[in-house]
Write a protein that binds this DNA or RNA. Structure first.
Lengths: 207, 207
DNA sequence: TAGATTGTTAATCGATTAACAATC
DNA sequence: TAGATTGTTAATCGATTAACAATC
């Protein structure tokens, strides 16, 4: 049992392996070696071997990994097999877009409700997900019991709304704003700023 | 002139500084020091100083950086001041969601058209952006001349569609699929898999 | 001047890569 | 057996952190 904490870069590569291995499975393959993954996916074979050493699997010498087992282990390790309940704050352009993305549920994220302060969206439904006034959250989350809060509010109120979500029992904040919020220790923060990724791409394009 | 290539981790932090400094400007501040940013944003002051050494700005000893100048320099460096034309392949759940996110245009990304092979979306409009059949792309891009291709197709066809976009003149691929595609050298690839970020969050929550 | 700040250089840390022993 | 593969250990590389000189 290797229960050393996996480094974040390694953790982020695991979904690539999973995605490729699922493709192989759909093509009827039974086994895959790290060298085979490496060739297709542009990650070195030793890196793959090292990354896989963090998960609970052992390969067969001269054969590689059992595909079904690898998929199962990765899906479980990455948390895609369990439904995690979430709420979303800020039903603007990006927020509404995320509520409409039904793909997230296949990966274990179920958005139960949206919250906003804008009267034009409060008490509507988007893609069958109800939107409530933010003030109702603390009371409602006693029932909903969501552990993840998705943050798609304007940057200026990101910190404040994050604090509010946490006071209502949120354990993990998925921050889509470009603002770098701070959270108490013990609370998980994941920053996913599309704009930061855009910036990386623009910068590389212009050089 | 410091034209050393900026490391990607540093590049990704710049939008955080930009976001905070814009907030300060809206509060009427004129100058900001790296120590002040550090306190608010949970990045060490020396890291900030080092990151800012890659952009074309110099601070004033004992005063810090001029906020207007810093915003201008970062906006320019990050490519947010120039409109970059993009097309989007795969108008499914996530793709349609991105077409609906008008926020991207404020950061320099203008999506001109969507492409798909599914008859139920071809020749419709989403958020005023027209959707065409994928087969029309090569011909159409002679006119559109988009440099960025947003990839929101199913994993299984991600590589194929990416190759196709590039053959039509795309210079930068923004890959939202969990599949790790490969691109020829000279083509910029930016991976933004929401599922990978979910995985990181789930993993940290469960430990 | 004293003190706060920038910005560079050196030391540290951690991830990646390479080498290789073990296995079938 | 020979050869392909896993999986660990050591070497390398690059980013972060710390120290500090320069500046106003």
């Amino acid at each position: 049992m290797n229960s050393n904490k996996i480094p974040e870069p390694a953790l982020r590569r695991l979904p690539w392996y999973l995605s490729y291995v699922k493709l192989l499975k759909s093509q009827g393959e039974k086994y895959v070696s790290s060298t085979k993954i490496a060739k297709k996916i542009d990650v070195s074979a030793s890196q793959i071997a090292k990354d896989l050493s963090f998960v609970e699997i052992s390969g067969k010498t001269r054969v590689g990994y059992d595909i079904d087992e690898l998929i199962n282990v990765l899906d479980t390790f990455l948390g895609f097999k369990v439904i995690h309940k979430a709420v979303l704050f800020g039903v603007g352009s990006l927020g509404a877009a995320l509520l409409s993305d039904s793909g997230l549920e296949q990966y274990g994220l179920k958005i139960i409700a949206g919250f906003d302060v804008n009267k034009s969206v409060v008490d509507t439904k988007i893609h069958d997900i109800p939107v409530y006034h933010s003030d109702e959250f603390i009371q409602m989350n006693k029932e909903i019991d969501a552990e993840i809060g998705i943050l798609t509010v304007p940057s200026g109120v990101a910190q404040e709304v994050s604090d509010y979500m946490i006071s209502g029992g949120i354990k993990g904040v998925w921050n889509f704003t470009p603002f770098r919020i701070r959270v108490p220790s013990g609370i998980v923060l994941q920053n996913t700023s599309l704009y930061a990724h855009l910036a990386v791409m623009f910068n590389r394009l212009d050089s």
